[in-house]
Amino acid sequence: MATPYPWHPWTTDLALKEDGQRVDLTDNNFEWWYFDTIMDDGSTCVITFLSKPPFLKGPTAPILQFNISPPNGPYIQKMVLPDAGSYSASSEHCSVTMGDNRVEGDLHTYHIHARAEGIEADLTLKRVVPGWREGPFLPPQVAAQSWLGEQVVIPSGTAQGTLTYNGGTHRVKGTCYHDHQWGSAGAQQPGAQGNKITSWYWGRIQAGDHAVVMAQVYDTAGPAMTMWMLARGTAITFDDTLTALSVTPKGGTPRVPATLDIAWSPGAAPGAAPPLGTVSFSLSSTQEIASFSDGGYLRFVCPVTMTSDFAGETFSQDGHAVWEIMNFS
């Protein structure tokens, strides 16, 4: 259901446990903690702690997905498969360990250590924009009924630390994002009954003191769900009205467009309040920084120019984005 104007998340008053383990370790359930950074030197680092392969039934089988893209040259992608006995996750707060890799955080500050063959990261992430929850907090037995649940913990923040790659250790600083997702392989997919989820686009954009987190999910009938967050400083505007978000693929292939033109125009739906303006930008797939599931999942980084006349604030700001394509078929 669409959130009424003035469009805000359910709450930004999160409890520590909301970034702890959300579902029990069973053959049906899966969970992951995702962190991405874009550094001032042009490098990127994305680290994901997964309890097991998502959307599949099976026992706990931890995975560390670890990607670094240097300022120049091809990206480096590693997948670490620690022993299941080395995996632990606290239900009280974010504290995940798998083998020699770990993340610890308290909704505000996170410390990450990750290591794979030839690469290593020691990073501290700090929240700028508050995390938020779209609906009520779900206890484990209810969360486990979700096809895919999400908690956006750091929509926009800062990162600093060291990245080791190509034989050298580099001191870095930049921006960051963190979310936390969970679900059950046996849960019913969202959307209209009988329609299957086929794909999604997701992105996080930082342009000056403006940040956007957006997603468009598709099923066999077309666009099925949307999510949009615009932060101006630390003030959040949230919208899940399907008709407010326009996502237009251009060029490339049907599975991997060359660009995505994004425009958010709240109040533009028939019978709704007069439009309050538009926020727009384009995402490019020129620079790939990750590929999983035989190319079914792709991640990119790109420069962006965000323009807006929303709510009486007119601006054009340059920035950057991490965005992804997920194809289930």
Rank of each mutant, 00 (worst) to 15 (best):
G174M: 00
Q160L: 09
D179E: 09
A235P: 00
Y201C: 04
V212P: 01
P190Y: 10
D219L: 12
T198E: 06
V152R: 00
A207P: 09
P249R: 04
T175D: 12
T241K: 08
T169A: 13
T234K: 07
A159I: 12
P249C: 06
S184V: 10
A185P: 13
N166I: 03
W202C: 06
A215D: 01
E150L: 11
A215I: 02
A211I: 00
T162P: 08
P155I: 00
S184R: 13
V153A: 01
G167H: 06
C176E: 02
G208N: 10
S246H: 01
A185W: 10
G149N: 08
H170G: 11
T164S: 08
Q181M: 08
I154E: 01
V217H: 02
W200M: 07
S156Q: 07
T241E: 08
H210Y: 10
A224Y: 00
P190W: 01
G233S: 09
T162S: 04
W228D: 01
G194E: 13
Q151R: 10
A207C: 11
T169I: 11
A224D: 06
T175R: 11
D179C: 06
G168I: 14
V212G: 02
W228Q: 04
N195A: 12
A221G: 07
V172C: 11
M214V: 03
M227V: 09
A207D: 14
N166S: 13
G194N: 07
P155N: 08
A215T: 11
P249M: 11
Q188H: 12
S156Y: 12
T220W: 05
M229P: 04
R232F: 05
L163A: 04
T158G: 15
T226E: 05
Q193V: 14
G168Y: 14
G208P: 11
Q206V: 15
T169F: 13
R204V: 08
A187C: 14
V217A: 03
G208W: 07
K173A: 09
G191Q: 10
D219E: 03
G149Q: 02
G167Q: 05
M229D: 03
G208D: 13
C176P: 12
G161R: 03
E150V: 11
L163V: 02
Y165W: 01
T234G: 05
G167P: 06
Y177W: 09
G157E: 10
W200P: 04
I197D: 03
E150H: 10
V153L: 07
T226W: 00
Q160N: 15
H170C: 07
S199K: 11
G174P: 04
G183W: 03
W202T: 06
M214Y: 08
T169H: 06
D209S: 14
T220Q: 14
G186R: 14
W200K: 08
Y201W: 15
M225P: 00
G149Y: 03
V152M: 09
V152P: 01
G203D: 02
A207G: 13
